[in-house]
């Protein structure tokens, strides 16, 4: 199931403004890749380009290519809707659908895929919520609204929702930045478990988090205010945090900059 992603000379634009410049990066299947860097460096934009969510914003476009197991997802004959069904996404702020129950939140993606059989939905919902380490907390109130959960529970609900359709890749855009430390820990544990089945890319502001959860780390930064962000280097997480090749990376992770 898990697939490999490779971006080749990927640049992202908002209208005429270039937000990401020429990023080339390989993301291995069944691994966690963390993207770190200062605010405005384009790491979230880059992440959103990986499942064609970037182009949802009016005027946004990309240049270069994104390969999903050797298929360029930006080919004209590729359907962005199908891409997003294959590459799931979890957002910075938990966004369960407020008018839906916990059950319906998790089942939403399956229903979009045309799954209608109750037993099939029940199984998938239970499996996904269990996989998101949320089952014990919500199994008695699946019919209640997801908005009634705590922030950390909501975020795990969103992860359950994303993995219910069994995507090949899971993108996470600062999934813990709105959560308290205990909820953050729960999500990080979950990421380590999910790695066995999914390819995971996580954008984070928190360097300790990147060091804790990821196998590979990519460092983005910008050359100056208002300029495009670019990928400085990518390497194993151990190497990036102990002995990075680039001076700029070292400056960032040691806190001398950014």
């Amino acid at each position: 199931m898990a697939k490999r992603i490779e971006t080749i000379r990927l640049s992202c634009f908002y209208g005429s403004y270039k937000a990401v410049d020429d990023a080339s990066l390989v993301i291995e299947p069944k691994s966690v890749t963390a993207l770190i860097g200062p605010s405005g460096c384009g790491k979230s934009t880059y992440l959103r380009a990986l499942n064609r969510m970037h182009e949802v914003i009016p005027g946004a476009r990309v240049e270069g290519s994104v390969l999903l197991d050797d298929v360029d997802i930006y080919r004209p004959d590729v359907d962005p809707v199908a891409v997003r069904r294959t590459i799931g996404m979890v957002f910075q702020r938990p966004n369960p659908f407020p008018t839906m129950s916990i059950y319906d939140n998790v089942a939403a993606g399956l229903k979009l895929n045309g799954v209608r059989r109750k037993s099939e939905l029940d199984d998938a919902v239970e499996r996904s919520i269990k996989a998101a380490n949320l089952w014990g907390e919500v199994k008695d109130r699946l019919g209640k609204a997801g908005a009634g959960l705590s922030g950390g529970q909501q975020q795990r609900l969103c992860i359950a929702r994303a993995i219910a359709v069994e995507p090949a890749v899971l993108l996470m855009d600062e999934p813990c930045s709105a959560l308290d430390p205990i909820s953050t820990l729960a999500i990080e544990d979950l990421i380590s478990q999910l790695k066995d089945s999914y390819t995971i890319v996580i954008v984070t502001h928190n360097m300790q988090q990147a060091a804790r959860v990821s196998d590979t780390t990519g460092f983005f930064t910008l050359r100056g205010p208002g300029e495009a962000g670019y990928l400085v280097e990518v390497d194993t997480t151990t190497k990036i945090f102990t002995n990075p090749t680039e001076q700029r990376t070292e400056d960032y992770i040691t806190g001398r900059f950014g």
């Binding site: 969510m53 997003r84 069904r85 957002f91 659908f97 008018t99 939403a108 993606g109 979009l112």
Partner: peptide
């Protein structure tokens, strides 16, 4: 965020309107 959440699940524009915007 609701719209994006639905789109990211692989909803078409109309499915997004029907499931995330109208309710």
């Amino acid at each position: 965020a609701q719209r994006e959440g639905m789109l990211a699940l692989g909803a078409t524009h109309w499915e997004m309107v029907r499931m995330a915007v109208l309710p």
